[in-house]
């Protein structure tokens, strides 16, 4: 079977997203535990850092040490995410590779050496928009291929770069549909646009809940265009955040600060950061799964592993039938 023919058999972009969701649901418990144990502390750390730096009376003194803690949590998160993706690729290839302490250390070293730079390069690429697809793909493929089996950084870099430039159309669509980065850009654009409106129109002319209406409209435009799934998800999470304090009062009689000053809570920046944090936790595993599938499929064009999986499936089906 030629490479061209097999390339044409690649699933469509929507099928890829659907397969990514299915793969995430099939992920083993150990992979999920590692993913959440590594990612949730970073998200909580960012929220604590954000809240502390925006309100803390002595936050100046803690800024440097808190930033160092956050940097360490970021590296831990990337290691956990790579472990998660390695399990997803094992599930796709039906060939679980043994995990040893040495392999895990190698994975940690490779991911720790490369991923921090992504946080510098990706926002810059996002500002320029077009190269973001390649840069985003490059670092996500690093997560997939830097699984501790190969320590040759030059070879890994070449593999990641080759993978990131394959099938740009599918990759662009995956990014648009699933990536939380574009949702973040949409939220920032909304925030900036609301400030622009405030500069143009005197505050006295916009009263009551009109600011929320303007904000919601701008958010629907920016986030809806840049990340439709992220927009729907954020809307749902926002409704949940507002509803929970009301439900607590109705069913348990607990009157919290979040219910008493719901309007103020909605307007502060930590609330928006929390919305994004939860949306990130929902979207990121699916993005990782989509890139795991891409990596597996693209590398299968050379090593034929997908054919081995298909043959194994056929053999199993025949054995089950007989």
């Amino acid at each position: 079977m030629t490479g061209r023919r097999r390339k044409n058999e690649q699933p469509g972009v929507l099928a890829l997203a659907e397969e990514a969701v299915l793969l995430v649901r099939r992920a083993p418990l150990a992979a999920w535990a590692c993913y959440l144990a590594a990612t949730v502390p970073f998200v909580l750390g960012v929220l604590y850092f954000w809240s502390d730096m925006s309100r803390g009376a002595q936050a100046h003194d803690r800024c440097a040490s808190a930033a160092l803690g956050l940097a360490a949590l970021f590296v831990v998160m990337k290691i956990g995410q790579s472990f998660f993706v390695a399990h997803l690729i094992d599930a796709l290839s039906q060939r679980p590779r043994p995990w040893t302490g040495r392999r895990f250390l190698r994975l940690a070293a490779v991911q720790g050496a490369i991923q921090p730079w992504g946080l510098f390069v990706m926002p810059l690429a996002l500002l320029l928009m077009y190269p973001f697809v390649i840069v985003h793909g490059y670092y996500h493929h690093w997560t997939a291929i830097g699984d501790g089996e190969d320590m040759n950084l030059k070879r890994l870099r070449r593999r990641a770069w080759t993978l990131a430039r394959q099938d740009m159309r599918s990759q662009t669509f995956t990014l648009w549909l699933l990536s939380p980065w574009l949702l973040g850009l949409g939220m920032l654009a909304t925030f900036g646009a609301v400030r622009m409106v405030a500069l143009i129109v005197p505050a006295a002319e916009i009263q009551g809940a009109a600011w929320f209406a303007i904000g919601a409209l701008l958010f629907a435009v920016f986030a809806g265009l840049l990340s439709p799934l992220g927009f729907a998800l954020t809307l749902n999470i926002g409704i949940l955040f507002v509803t929970i304090p009301e439900l607590l009062r109705m069913f348990l009689g607990w009157d919290t600060l979040f219910r008493i000053s719901a309007g103020y809570a909605l307007a502060n920046t930590t609330f928006l950061a929390a919305l994004f944090g939860v949306a990130y936790l929902c979207m990121d595993p699916v993005v990782k799964a989509a890139y795991a599938i891409r990596t597996f499929r693209t590398e299968s064009l050379r090593n034929g592993r997908d054919i081995l999986v298909a043959i194994r499936d056929l053999r199993d089906a025949r054995e089950a039938a007989s």
Binding site: R195, A198, A210, I260, G263, Y264, L266, A267, N268, T269
Partner: peptide
């Protein structure tokens, strides 16, 4: 700014 200065003043509309 962090507390939402734009929306904070007319927040009475949301107060219980």
């Amino acid at each position: 700014f962090h507390e939402g200065d734009l929306a904070a003043s007319p927040m009475e509309a949301f107060e219980p």
